[in-house]
Amino acid sequence: DTLHVTQDGKHIELRGLSEEEIKLVEELLRRGRKVEEALKIIEELRK
């Protein structure tokens, strides 16, 4: 699936995420994380 995010005035499209990963990214962003940080966390969880 694809998640569309706008952060720091930039539109970012995150592709290839599972539904659970999207929920996790959304939660991390709500808690003030940056998109880059959220993606690093997803990458770690995929290992």
Rank of each mutant, 00 (worst) to 15 (best):
E13G: 02
E37R: 03
E36H: 11
K10M: 14
R30M: 11
R46K: 08
Q7S: 08
L14P: 06
V25F: 07
R33M: 14
R33G: 15
E44S: 10
V5L: 04
I41Q: 11
E44P: 00
E27W: 05
G16M: 01
H4A: 05
K40L: 12
A38V: 15
S18G: 06
L14G: 07
I12V: 10
V25T: 05
I12T: 04
I41G: 03
Q7P: 05
G9L: 02
E20N: 14
A38C: 09
G16A: 01
Q7G: 05
L45P: 01
H11T: 15
G32P: 01
E26A: 08
A38S: 07
H11V: 15
T2Q: 10
L45N: 14
T2P: 08
V35I: 09
L17Q: 00
E43N: 08
L29Q: 03
L45G: 11
E27L: 10
R31N: 14
I42D: 00
G16S: 04
E44D: 14
V25W: 03
G9E: 04
Q7K: 03
H11C: 05
L39S: 04
D8H: 03
R33I: 15
E21L: 05
L24Q: 09
I41L: 12
K34C: 02
A38W: 03
L28A: 10
K40P: 03
K23C: 09
V5H: 02
T6K: 04
E37W: 02
I42W: 01
G16I: 02
K47Q: 13
Q7M: 01
R46V: 07
L45F: 08
R15M: 14
A38Q: 01
T6A: 06
L14W: 00
E37V: 08
R15W: 14
L28D: 04
H11D: 15
R15T: 15
V5D: 05
E13V: 04
R46A: 09
V25S: 01
L39N: 03
T2F: 11
T2D: 09
H11I: 15
G9P: 03
E43V: 05
E20Y: 11
E20H: 12
G9M: 02
L28T: 09
A38N: 00
K34R: 15
R46M: 07
R31D: 12
V25D: 00
T2C: 12
R46W: 03
L28I: 13
S18K: 05
T2W: 08
L24M: 10
I42V: 12
V5W: 00
R33D: 14
L3F: 01
L39A: 08
R46C: 04
H11Y: 09
I22E: 05
K34N: 10
H11P: 06
A38P: 00
L3P: 09
I22Q: 11
L14S: 07
R30F: 06
E19A: 15
E13L: 03
L3E: 05
